[in-house]
């Protein structure tokens, strides 16, 4: 049992070490990631003074929120369509749905780059937004579909018997039932979008940039502690998201009763 504890402790240590290492050195006045001179908040000041960076953060958040909202709407409709599809179509649709999830990022990026070039879409905000919507949709579908399958079909029959039309069935029965799945899908889409680097890197063009792409180009130039400061802020933001997500899922599942 002691060995087991030690092993787990070691895994957690390795998992969190790099993150805390970054955070620790973000307070270093020395300017490097190996010798801690004295405590400073200068790097944070740098981040907040850097208008270009702040604009990029804003872009990233806008793309993430817009893409995950739109992907959630399309994904929920898609999940319902798959749910109602005839059995032999179901498998085909699911396979098509999952292609983008299992595809390596470079292939998604490269093929979208070809697609946008042919379609004459200027690389920039639009292409990045469209790509993010595209790769988020299948995740939403995968989060919502199990909830739909879990739902007893008798619920729908009962609603129909009681005189509900299609729209009522959808908004009063189906959607409330799958709400936890929708939230989970939305949050997954949000994190996928915030986290994506490879696809964005391909379709971003010159004028537009997201945080991941910006961090990549800064990291290639070597170590700069304002990147550390930025990562601390992002980590705190992520933590906040997780807590919000946790509370929402706890609450919805509590409302759902037994589960």
């Amino acid at each position: 049992m002691k060995v087991a504890r030690l092993y787990l402790a070691f895994v957690f240590f390795v998992l969190y070490m790099p993150i805390f290492y970054l955070i620790y050195y973000s307070f270093n006045s020395g300017g490097t990631m190996h010798h801690f001179e004295s405590f400073t908040l200068d790097w944070y000041k740098d981040v907040f003074d850097d208008t270009r960076l702040l604009v990029i953060v804003l872009h990233t958040v806008i793309v993430a929120l817009l893409s995950s909202s739109l992907a959630t709407i399309i994904g929920v409709l898609g999940a319902i369509a798959i749910y109602y599809a005839k059995h032999r179509w179901k498998q085909t649709l699911l396979t098509l749905n999952n292609i983008l999830i299992v595809s390596p990022d470079v292939i998604i990026g490269a093929s979208f780059l070809i697609l946008f070039t042919i379609a004459g879409i200027q690389l920039g905000f639009t292409s990045v937004l469209l790509s993010h919507i595209a790769f988020s949709i299948p995740i939403v579908v995968l989060m919502v579909l199990p909830k739909l399958q879990e739902m007893s079909p008798t619920l729908i029959d009962a609603a129909r018997d009681l005189g509900a039309n299609e729209w009522n069935v959808l908004t009063k029965v189906v959607l409330p039932y799958v709400t936890p799945g929708i939230f989970a899908g939305f949050f997954m889409a949000l994190t996928y979008s915030l986290d994506d680097f490879a696809v964005t890197f391909f379709v971003t063009g010159n004028g537009f940039s997201t945080l991941s792409v910006e961090i990549y180009s800064r990291a290639r130039q070597g170590i700069s502690l304002s990147v550390n400061a930025l990562s601390t802020l992002l980590f705190l933001f992520t933590l906040l998201l997780v807590v919000v997500y946790y509370i929402i899922t706890q609450r919805t599942s509590a409302k759902g009763g037994q589960k």
């Binding site: 957690f12 998992l15 969190y16 070490m17 790099p18 993150i19 290492y21 970054l22 050195y25 490097t32 990631m33 190996h34 010798h35 994190t191 915030l194 986290d195 680097f197 945080l211 991941s212 961090i215 990549y216 990291a219 070597g222 170590i223 990147v227 990562s231 992002l234 980590f235 992520t238 933590l239 998201l241 997780v242």
Partner: peptide
């Protein structure tokens, strides 16, 4: 265990630039 996956991939790679550096 899942939490670190929510930290941007690039930042994790960047952290190792410091950790594995000559004086890291």
């Amino acid at each position: 265990i899942i939490l670190p996956t929510w930290v941007n991939l690039l930042l994790k790679a960047y952290a190792f630039l410091g950790l594995f550096g000559t004086y890291g």
